[in-house]
Amino acid sequence: MRYAMAVDTKKCVGCSDCVVACQTENNVPIGFCRDWVVEVTDGTYPQLEIEIRSERCNHCENSPCVRCCPTGASHYAEGGVVLVTPNKCIGCGACIASCPYDARYPHPDGYVDKCTFCLHNRVEKGLDPACVSVCPTKCMYFGDLDDPNSPVSKVLKTRKFKTLIPEAGTNPQLYFLI
């Protein structure tokens, strides 16, 4: 099993519903976010292109955060989802410094927090992650890459996609449809 997510940059309008849904679902402390929207404007005026991406932890297959964690608090859970066990985390910040995507943050309670793909609270119950399920443009696809019939497998078969900073060697599992 290999959980992954694909975000359609052609459909995303940057409404931030995914951000608010995540904050509500996961009780994210005020002022922080586990997912966020990035808008990239590129080109020479007046030929400008805009790409909007809903970003979060890339749940990398070769995660630098899991590698550098001194206590094993950062670990691979079911389906390759990268999780942090709060009562094993010492809050040293090594994983935060190791993440090329800056997807982690120090929770005010001391431990390090990040996107969980809503593994325990939703995915294990057969639901989509909160961000995917609220998206008004249905621009996000989630599922198991080992299952050819999962929404994410299907969309990656038919569309061109990219990952962020593939040259960092982390093998990210968050895909952007382009």
Binding site: C33, V40, G43, E55, G93
Partner: peptide, 23 residues
């Protein structure tokens, strides 16, 4: 001139706008 402008909605304390986790 070709330019790229990145606007991120993320502003996590000690992470943005620049990493500042170790003092």
């Amino acid at each position: 001139m070709r330019e790229e402008l990145i606007v991120s909605g993320r502003m996590n304390h000690l992470i943005d706008p620049q990493l500042n986790i170790w003092h």
